[in-house]
Design a protein around this nucleic acid. Structure first.
Lengths: 204, 204
DNA sequence: ACCTGTGAATAGTTTCACAGCT
DNA sequence: AGCTGTGAAACTATTCACAGGT
């Protein structure tokens, strides 16, 4: 329904509006928003137009109203259970991040294939061996999984998550997940690959 | 010159070809590549066509030839010095990752604003206080910077990196970097934002 | 003077169809 | 039968211009 790049930009805008609201701003114009996000005012207005008529012609947008409109349109207010698979350095860094708490995402489980690691890990969140992913994901109604395992284990991890009913996957590994059902969404965040893309752009 | 999405896909393809080469594969067809990457064979061929005539009509692509052609076209063989700013859990996880080593990227410096942290950190890489970013980046000819600092410090960090001559920035923080010169490239990798985008797509 | 919302125009990307080769 | 390379077509997205309001 909504074009993909529009959804992406509205999510970015949403986070910016939360920040602006916290700073006490009451209204913003598309020009100001564009300046902060590094895109044109035209583009901001077009994106917002997908939400219906929200702004006050001649006087910009009310920060709260706009934020709530995006939230309503994209159903961002829903609380979602998440899990992290792979409790190595990267995985536990994400696990201990305080940035999920205020975002509607709650990490309700961690998984690792190493029993030793599970025993020594210090965290408030329940941790389980990797073979239990599907069962626990299903039981705890986990909707979103974060993969932070080595590349070789990524595909199997994704399959277990999908089997457990997870429909959104954030993949930090360098592996490309295959055979993704049409109703499951995967975002790849391999930082070596991203560095490669950056390097390529720097050369052109 | 080369369209942006083509560059992105060629980089992904490049990493896949390295993997395939390591497994001993000599040739691949666009159909096979498409299957592995989850895109159509048409699209693979179109992307590769930007490199010139590389394939063997009727018999697919030689893995090595194709890999080297991408490498040459995007200048991926060049060694690049990188640095990480912010040596908290996420930053040091990336710092200690063994995945850069074989990729042409070398992390030659780490930075943090906390002197205490700099003193206690255990790593082989030289670490410096954050106010020296510009000088060290310039001296060590650092081309790529990874930002893993809290959102509030991200903008200043980016400015210091750019001042030191860094032209590629991987931004793990939730802040959106502003006032980016046209010859500097920034990729945002805020995982909370990516989760939000995933959640939005899951609803539509 | 500055703002939003919108339809038109432009630019860019993906998909398709097929010619030619193995 | 299956493969690459390519030009055309279809689709998508961005940019622009401006009408109308404050």
């Amino acid at each position: 329904m909504l074009p993909k790049p529009v959804v992406t930009r509205l999510c970015t805008l949403y986070r910016l509006l939360i920040e602006l609201g916290g700073q006490g701003a009451a209204t913003v114009s598309s020009t100001e928003l564009g300046g902060m996000l590094g895109v044109s005012a035209h583009s901001i207005r077009k994106d917002i137009a997908h939400l219906g008529e929200i702004g006050n012609v001649g006087a910009g947008y009310a920060v709260e109203t706009l934020r709530d409109a995006i939230c309503a349109r994209l159903n961002l207010s829903r609380h979602r259970n998440c899990c992290i698979v792979g409790l190595g350095r990267l995985g536990s860094a994400v696990l201990d991040s305080d940035r999920f708490a205020s975002s509607g995402f709650e990490i309700v489980a961690g998984f690792d294939s190493s029993i030793n690691r599970l025993e020594t890990i210090r965290t408030d969140i329940s941790v389980y061996p990797a073979y239990q992913i599907a069962r626990i994901a299903s039981e705890k109604k986990i909707e979103l999984g974060i993969i932070a395992v080595p590349a070789a284990a990524a595909q199997q991890t994704a399959e277990r998550l999908i089997e457990g009913g997870v429909r959104g996957i954030l993949n930090f590994s360098s592996a490309i997940i295959r055979q993704i059902p049409p109703d499951v969404f995967v975002t790849n965040m391999d930082f070596v690959r991203e560095c490669t893309i950056l390097a390529a752009h720097m050369e052109l």
